[in-house]
Amino acid sequence: MNKVALVTGASKGLGVEIVKALIGDGYKVVMTSSSRKGVDLVAGELGLEYDKYRTLALDVRDKSDFENALSFCIEEFGSCELLVNNAAITPTTDVMEITPEEFSEVVDTNLRGTFLGCQVFGKYLAGKNYGRIVNISSLAGQMGGTASGAHYAASKAGIITLTKIFARKLAPLGVTVNSIAPGPIDVPSMSEKLSAQQLEDIVNNAIPVKALSSAKYIADMVVMLARKDAETVTGATWDINGGIYMR
């Protein structure tokens, strides 16, 4: 079976780990970001062989961009079997200070982007009678968010609901749709946003297992959910949060 994936938000953090895990599992990956320069830089830093990847600028707020990205996958690699909706922006503005413009920007990128990706790729995968979609949600979307902005938390909660709706719609057509809800992750952006003391406080006081979640493990879970024999796993949200949120 051909194994081709498109990953949004592939220029940093978790997106980079997802790309590495998929290529390690035999996928050819179309790496996308709002700027092609970002994913080109990552591909160069990783030393990827060109037959294993392509890069593409993708504005996830634009349906035509997703349609063009799908066409690009087919032109370059012959098909696409997996979409990973990872792109997101994560401002931490206090709820009383969020402007309507900022709210729209976050929701359009995080939630609208996931919706459009599921819609465009979902139709294509349904036509093939096979495919996988993995959406990256967040602990913030389950608990309402404490460190993250209200608009971010709301968008991530919406992703969990969209995952269920698309999963139900596409299940009879051979397509599974799942989401992953990470808590605090050990990625460079964490240390950029928080001081060493703040990180230590989070690990020791907020996380029962007293450790940040591994980006590599989350990426490995994407690979697991994308496997052909994961056909009965759909509509689920997989929690990776160190025990902060248990259900």
Rank of each mutant, 00 (worst) to 15 (best):
T93V: 13
M143P: 00
A10F: 06
A226W: 05
T163C: 07
G141I: 04
T32P: 01
A87Q: 04
V84C: 09
E105L: 08
W238N: 08
K210H: 15
T8V: 08
D59T: 10
H151P: 01
G127E: 09
G131D: 09
F77D: 00
A43L: 10
Q198N: 12
A147P: 01
A230I: 04
S71G: 12
T234S: 15
D62E: 14
I207F: 11
L116H: 03
V175M: 10
D108I: 00
Y27N: 04
K63C: 00
V84Q: 03
T146E: 13
P184R: 09
L14P: 00
K123T: 06
G183Q: 06
V222R: 02
G131H: 11
S71L: 13
A171S: 15
S191H: 15
G158V: 10
V29S: 01
K156S: 06
I159Q: 03
V60D: 00
A181H: 07
T114S: 14
D65Y: 01
F77M: 11
G174K: 07
L82D: 04
K210A: 12
P208D: 11
E97F: 05
F115W: 11
V223L: 10
L225E: 01
T92H: 09
V4N: 11
I185P: 00
A206T: 13
G145M: 08
V7A: 06
R61N: 09
S33Y: 11
F166N: 02
N86I: 08
